Computed example of a mutant assay.
Amino acid sequence: MQDLSAHHVGITVSDLDRAVSFYRDVLGLDVLARFSVGGEEFATGVGVANASADFAHLDGDGARIELVEYEPEGEDATGGDVNQPGAKHVGLAVDDLDAFYETLPDEVETISEPQTTESGTRILFVRDPDENLVEILET
């Protein structure tokens, strides 16, 4: 068996431009590339008839975040709580969580103010425009 290495974390969004604005302008990630993919092989590969998609790859300082807007759009599976089974969040790190929290625009939904867990980790969960959870933790 070949060794695997992590390549990206994918997040499906309903409006790619809006999502890119949030991840770039609010979270400060750099856009690495934007592109579109379609065709029979893509649709077969993702298991969605007649699928095409617009993509944006963003640099999370070593963790590539892939935002994807599919056509046709599937059923809404966003929102929910972090303890529901399935991929529920992407984690990003900052040096000063309180300073990051203070700079968040008022319209960004947060689960709570920054918290310190039993393990000593400082965390903050925010929601992107599609209600996907993003964990911000202090390193």
Rank of each mutant, 00 (worst) to 15 (best):
L124E: 03
G91Y: 07
G60Q: 09
A99N: 11
S21Y: 13
T44D: 13
A51V: 04
F22S: 01
S52I: 08
G86W: 14
V9D: 09
I123K: 08
E71F: 11
G47L: 01
H8N: 06
S119I: 10
E41V: 11
V46H: 00
E73M: 05
F55V: 00
L92N: 06
V134D: 03
D130V: 03
T78A: 04
M1L: 14
I111Y: 09
V13I: 05
E118V: 05
G80E: 03
V48W: 09
S112A: 15
Q84M: 05
S52P: 08
A51R: 05
V13Y: 00
L29M: 08
V68Q: 02
F100Y: 10
E102A: 12
L27A: 04
I136N: 01
K88R: 15
D3Y: 14
D17N: 13
H7G: 05
L4E: 09
R122F: 11
M1I: 12
G47N: 01
L58H: 05
E138H: 11
D130Q: 02
V48L: 11
V90L: 10
V94F: 07
G10Q: 04
E138I: 06
P129A: 03
F55N: 00
L92H: 07
L32E: 07
E107H: 10
V20Y: 11
E135L: 12
D76Q: 06
V94Q: 03
D81C: 12
M1K: 04
L92A: 05
V20M: 01
V46S: 00
G45C: 07
E113M: 09
P105N: 06
A93D: 12
T44Y: 14
E41D: 12
D30Y: 13
G91N: 08
N132D: 00
L137C: 15
E107P: 02
N50R: 05
